[in-house]
Design a protein around this nucleic acid. Structure first.
Length: 208
DNA sequence: AAAACGGGGGC
DNA sequence: GCCCCAGTTTT
């Protein structure tokens, strides 16, 4: 039986072999991370990247984003899913950052989730990626892969979150989400997983 | 607990 | 053409 650490190492190495870059540690501002994460929900990563780039080019700071006309934000966000909702949420979030947080992205879960469009998963992801604060972000990929590979046999994302926090040291929490998501997009797909090319093959409960 | 938001890509 | 997607908010 493989240890959880070994399972994650196999996934990480396989991603490296496929040329998937490791999560960037510096060079991206917390504001950039926050905007990008909100844009990303239910939207492909290529579209997310392009839309986020244009958005931040138009409005590099929270105050500039808060001052941009809603119709212009909708136009920039059009290729992304839920673009009207996100335009409204991002404009309001930017206004709150500008007027109530001094233009700075807050560092704790409660203040982050108080922003429109920011739920528990987005907050956890931003804390980890923007500030290096240990937090696990259990999205649909993490939950699915954990169950398929036999890492954890949990029924809800909340149980998966608790389980991951128990079996992995705090300093590894932040990196987990990125590994699971990249692996979930390329190998352990929701539908028709590519088991023949999977490094976990042989000790996976889904495809032993 | 379930529905609504929603355009884009894979098959 | 049909189905799925790094979720959050509202009913």
């Amino acid at each position: 039986m493989r240890t959880p650490a070994e399972t994650v190492r196999l996934m990480t190495e396989h991603l490296g072999d496929m040329g998937v870059p490791a999560p960037l540690s510096g060079g991206v501002s917390p504001f950039n991370v926050l905007v990008g994460t909100v844009v990303s929900l239910r939207t492909r990563d290529a579209v997310t990247l392009e839309v986020t780039k244009r958005l931040l080019q138009r409005a590099p700071t929270p105050c500039e984003l808060a001052g941009a006309p809603l119709c212009e934000l909708e136009e920039l966000l059009r290729p992304a899913g839920f673009f009207r909702v996100k335009a409204r949420q991002l404009k309001e979030t930017a206004r709150l950052l500008c007027e109530r947080h001094g233009g700075v992205v807050p560092r704790n879960r409660d203040e982050l989730t108080a922003l429109p469009g920011v739920g528990g998963k987005t907050a956890a992801f931003v804390m980890g990626m923007a500030f290096g604060i240990p937090a696990v972000c259990v999205d649909v990929h993490v939950h699915r892969i954990s169950n398929r590979t036999g890492l954890l046999a949990t029924r809800t994302p909340e149980q998966t979150e608790a389980g991951l926090m128990r079996i992995f040291p705090r300093e590894e929490w932040t990196g987990l989400n990125h590994v699971f998501v990249c692996f979930g997009q390329r190998v352990c797909l929701p539908v028709r997983p590519r088991c023949t090319a999977c490094p976990l093959k042989g000790e996976c409960e889904w495809n032993p």
